[in-house]
Simulated scan of single mutants.
Amino acid sequence: MRYAICLLPLTMLPVPAIAQAQETPAAGDEAGTMEHSQMQQGEMDQAEMNHSHMDHARMEQMDMTSSETNTDASIPQSPPPPAAFDGPLYAADEVVGAERMNSSRLNVMRQVSGMPVTWFQAERAEYRARKGGDGYLWDVQGYYGGDYDKLWLKSEGEGTFGEKVEDAEIQALWSHAIGPWFDLQTGVRQDLTGPTRTHATIGVQGLIPYEFEVDAAAFLSNKGDLTARIEAELDQRITQRLILQPRGEVELSAQDIPEAGIGAGLHKAELGLRLRYEFTREFAPYIGVEQEWKIGDSADYARAEGEDPSTTNYVAGIRFWF
């Protein structure tokens, strides 16, 4: 007996069978479908995040642009209107009156600037090692007064140990501010050694802005002798406490003064270099070297007295103030 097998096309199967075949995939197909679905979902999530970041960045940029635009728009681009300068310099003048307020402001200025202050400084108090006999030197000054007017006292002198003082003087000066940097000083100077002389004094003392401290004065003695002295020094900070100070001084005379060993013209010059260490601003020991020259007829007077017109001093001292 023979059997015949008939292969029917899929379309000829009953409809429920086709639906079942489509709705029930094989195990391998089910895994692939799930993986594909997850990948699609991840891509969609990533796209949404990128879109969100882009929107956030765009919003921030728009906010910044808007802020800058608003800020620029709020800044006037033209000069102030003329009406801005119509009012008084001081608003109180409108209420109290300009004359009364000017008097009050001047009174306050006098009280504040006239507040007296006492100050004293030993610029140089030093031991000097040199050929022919070690010596000493002092250079001190102080004042009492306010910002505009002060009473200054100054004293300088030097000598050799075991001998009498060679040079010594004291000055009493009235000082008045002639600007933010300099004071005009006038008064008297009294020599304490050598030929006794009293000098009328006029000079300036102050600071060349950010440069040298200067003290320059002219002296007219009771004998008619006219002399002058100029001192200058500059502080160069190596550190906050270590300071190198170059210093120079020249003395001039309008005539010969044989009894004082002074010749006409430039008769004396000093040039020194000092290195000090400020333990505090008010107390600073130092070491250094200074060269002195007597020039012209002054050198001849020194030689006649058996002195060397050129002297090198190795110095050690203390600078202090209070």
Rank of each mutant, 00 (worst) to 15 (best):
219 F>G: 00
133 G>V: 10
74 S>Y: 03
275 L>N: 13
257 I>W: 05
156 E>V: 03
136 Y>P: 15
217 A>Q: 03
148 Y>T: 12
199 H>E: 02
292 E>D: 12
133 G>Q: 07
318 I>A: 12
219 F>W: 00
258 P>M: 11
128 R>W: 14
168 A>V: 12
87 G>P: 06
199 H>K: 02
241 R>I: 01
320 F>P: 04
62 M>V: 14
302 A>P: 01
188 V>F: 14
124 R>F: 10
285 P>I: 11
102 N>V: 10
101 M>R: 15
185 Q>V: 04
97 G>W: 01
103 S>W: 14
27 A>W: 15
113 S>I: 06
140 V>K: 03
111 Q>C: 08
215 D>I: 02
23 E>V: 07
51 H>K: 11
201 T>N: 10
218 A>K: 01
183 D>G: 00
100 R>C: 06
134 D>L: 13
59 M>D: 00
239 T>Q: 06
40 Q>M: 09
73 A>P: 00
179 G>L: 15
152 W>R: 10
238 I>S: 05
170 I>G: 10
284 A>C: 00
269 A>M: 07
49 M>F: 13
257 I>C: 03
290 E>W: 03
146 G>P: 12
105 R>N: 07
198 T>H: 10
305 E>Y: 07
66 S>F: 15
70 N>C: 06
292 E>A: 06
132 G>W: 06
18 I>L: 15
30 E>K: 15
